[in-house]
Amino acid sequence: MRVGLIGRTHWLRDAGVIARQRGHDLVFLVTAPSANASQAGSQDLEVFAHEHGIPFHNTLRISELDLDADICISVNWTTVLRTPLLTRFPYGVLNAHAGDLPRYRGNATLNWAILNGETEACLTVHRMVEELDAGPIALQRRRPIGPDDDMTVLSRWLDEVLPTALVDAVDGIADGTLVFREQDPSIRPLRAYPRKPEDSRIDWRSPAEAIVRLVRASAPPFGGAITTGEDGREHRILRARVHRPDHDYLAVPGQVCFAIDGHPVIAAGEGMVEILECDAPDSKRVILSSLRNRLV
């Protein structure tokens, strides 16, 4: 099939690589300014396009381009694609969405899934319509979210499954084996809205379980969960776990209580949190410099 690529990130590039390997023709690549957490920015996509002789466009004015393809695949485009563009291609535009449709729609869906205590991650490939994440589903890929799984683990999983799933859907359309299914209207959508780095600031008055979920949801490729010492120094926590002490205690949330093998243990609003890894090598030492220290 003649496949167009629309969007950003290394996932779009990798889907293009797989599509070529499976015998599809890439007829254009349209991108826009790079996503902050992407492993492949607009310049990387331009290099990929030129290396393979693919017409390349770097513009947000996609509706003004003269584009022709049998089908398009889209990852992380910056704006809503409107119906005139979506219906321009005979087989439409496929999107890879890191959420369990029809429930999880919108942005940062895997981060929100961790924060919400979900036990399963889902990648959905669907045919785009103008309404956000509402199009018919082509296929889904799932994996459990374990109690210690964080965004580092789930991002690696997306690296493995997302590009392949997009091309699997293209293959199924090409050979006539793929059957789309409409989203179940009886399932009430859960709209996930974008998150900013500051949303990862820890409120030590929260329960320990909620704080650890925040750390997991903020792990690389994101910047970590944020806390600040009394000296004003900011620390980024990359890994943590709930600590269940063998004694009762009285402590103010944020209190540095003790250490386990050099890992600070901090009182939360309910329970304790053991800090396992920070972004700076000396952060744990600074936090543990005095048991009078408080994190805010």
Rank of each mutant, 00 (worst) to 15 (best):
L5F: 09
L5R: 07
I6E: 02
T9R: 15
H10L: 11
D14N: 15
L26P: 11
V27N: 12
F28Y: 13
N36Y: 09
A40S: 10
A40D: 15
L45R: 08
L45I: 13
L45E: 07
A49I: 10
A49L: 07
H57P: 02
N58C: 12
T59C: 08
R61I: 01
S63W: 06
E64K: 12
L67V: 09
L67E: 05
A69Y: 12
D70T: 12
W77H: 13
T79P: 02
T79M: 11
V80L: 13
L81D: 13
R82H: 13
T83M: 08
L85A: 06
F89V: 06
P90Y: 01
L94V: 06
A98M: 11
A98D: 14
G99L: 09
P102T: 08
Y104E: 11
T109I: 06
N116V: 01
G117R: 09
E118R: 06
A121H: 10
C122S: 13
V129W: 03
L132K: 05
D133C: 04
G135M: 09
G135A: 09
I137T: 08
Q140A: 04
D150N: 15
T152W: 14
V153D: 15
L154V: 12
W157K: 07
L158C: 08
E160M: 03
A165M: 09
A165W: 04
V167D: 01
D168P: 02
A169C: 11
D175V: 05
T177W: 02
V179Y: 04
R191T: 14
K196I: 10
D199N: 12
S200W: 11
S200N: 15
D203C: 05
W204F: 00
E209I: 01
E209T: 06
L214Y: 03
S218K: 14
P221Y: 07
F222L: 14
T228A: 02
D231L: 07
R233A: 15
E234K: 09
I237C: 04
A240W: 04
R241W: 02
R244T: 14
Y249L: 00
Y249A: 06
C257W: 00
C257V: 02
F258V: 03
D261K: 11
A268R: 00
M272V: 00
I275A: 02
P281N: 08
R285F: 04
V286M: 14
V286F: 03
L291T: 03
N293S: 05
R294Y: 00
R294Q: 10
R294N: 01
